[in-house]
Design a protein around this nucleic acid. Structure first.
Lengths: 108, 108
DNA sequence: GTCGTATACCTGTTTGAACTAGGTATCGAC
DNA sequence: GTCGATACCTAGTTCAAACAGGTATACGAC
């Protein structure tokens, strides 16, 4: 993960979160992450699309081609039941992890 | 990062933090991380020692052989000025990153 | 005595996520 | 007509972390 812009593992988590309100296409997922984190997290396309395919292989999301708001063909991703469970697991793991690190950093 | 036990990049951060109170040897660094995070973070030795060598190469820490509390030879690591600066940078990066992710996860 | 456990170090190999750096194509605006 | 935004893709590279071993000392239990 050369540049280390992103902490490994959080991309999947954020993608799953982005899909909690219904199907979204890949490009929109990336935009959602960038926007809701106010540019603090920008997922490169070379990381985003492989991550989506990875999640599809693991059956955390399913794919459907559809039409985007702009009238273009786009691949929509839908959170599966397994994906929803995975999101809960990963979110709680991230939180306890972040808390643990923050606690360690706070030691004086 | 196979098992995904640890979010990439945080090992270095925690090692640097562990050295803020003076020199510590590698084994003690690993123990400190495990103890202060109450087993939430257990750094494998196969990740810990290479990380220490990496930080040494980058001149964030320096090495000195010494005697441990148990009277054994042990390699002590000391935070350099550059290491201290790196710790500040990485700690603040982690905090803003964790905050951004937490904010995204909190969206309803 | 030797057996297990904790201490203390090490590295070769593999894995795989993220990055780099390209590529294709459509559409509206200027 | 070309520029930017949208929308998708993947081959190749990097390198942190995990895996899976290894060495050696000290100490108490048995």
């Amino acid at each position: 993960m050369p540049g280390s812009d992103v902490f490994t593992g959080t991309i999947d988590l954020l993608i799953l979160k982005a899909l909690t309100w219904g199907p979204r296409h890949g490009y929109a997922v990336g935009r959602w992450i960038r926007e809701t984190t106010e540019d603090a997290l920008v997922i490169q396309e070379g990381a985003l699309y492989p991550a989506l395919h990875r999640l599809e292989r693991k059956e955390f999301v399913s794919e459907q081609w559809g039409e985007s708001e702009t009238g273009r063909q786009a691949k929509y991703y839908t959170l599966t039941a397994r994906g929803r469970a995975q999101l809960r697991r990963e979110a709680s793991r991230f939180e306890s992890y972040a808390t643990a690190v923050a606690r360690a950093l706070a030691v004086t």
